[in-house]
Amino acid sequence: MAWRLRLVPEKTNIDFFKIQWLTFGSSIAAMVASVVIILVMGLNFGIDFRGGTTIRTESTTPVDVGAYREALSTLGLGDVSISEVFDPAFRPDQHVSMIRISAREGEEAVTPAVIAEVETALKTVDPAILFPAVESVGPKVSEELITSALLSVLAGAAGILFYVWVRFEWQFAVGTVAALVHDVLVTVGIFSLFQIKFDLTIVAALLTILGYSVNDTVVIFDRLRENLAKYKQMPLRDLMNLTTNETLSRTIMTASTTLISLIVLVFFGGDVIRGFVFAMILGVILGSYSTLYMAKNIVLMLGVDRGDKPKKSNKGEFADVDA
């Protein structure tokens, strides 16, 4: 037999329900903790959701956050945050910072005059400074962006719920969506805990996590459905363990190829999409965990109607397609 890289032994026999109260309990605890953290600490919204201006600066001389802050302090801008940006892909003499200025109360349109003032002030600190990107979002648009972001995550979850319900049984749909809520909630919780910038791209990441996590769960459910028809007498708990063990190799394999591309993006993709990639990495890890330990638990608790004729056999509507 030729050598193969195997992360999972050929035949596994893990009892995924052995410590089900611990795993399920810690999932619930993580979700509750996430809600509490989000409520207490809030999210570090980017200008997409809060309104305001970000200015990206670039210079050949090192960033001096203190000097920048001092230069801007006389302008009366209110809430200003300045942070240096690091990226392995930067040139040795490439020093980048991000300056975020919150929108002021009652200002509908963005004021270019303020931006010009800021740029002039920074130029006195560092004459070589450049401004490769300046972005402003008015509060009116940011409010709408929050609504549409929330709506898109909800619509995504609803669509998945409906699809799984139609293709499988309702218990499967409930299990899938519970796993999704877990993945998204804990990801957002971690963003809140570490106060990582939360903007539109993070919402895209959350939606992709929805897609990934459901993909993972559905593959196991698909096999479970097949096994339900195959082993009519086996207790549901054992059947689930068998199914999960059969598909474990694939679960790990897919998670690792996806993680490989994501880790590559962290190092080579530039700092602009780093938050997005970080959210995705969290999501893939959480998604694999929730597939193994969360979704099935719920199906087991709800039970599956195992009449003589299963609602849908493994010869589903796609099995007859001549591939």
């Binding site: 699809y163 539109l200 992709t208 993909n215």
Partner: peptide
């Protein structure tokens, strides 16, 4: 095939929703 189909349809579903509701980078 059935597993591939199911997992891809759900992925496609989220992509469509993102396109429909999202703006700009999304």
């Amino acid at each position: 095939f059935s597993a591939i189909m199911d997992s891809n349809v759900t992925g496609l579903l989220t992509a469509v929703i993102m396109f429909w509701l999202g703006s700009g980078p999304v």
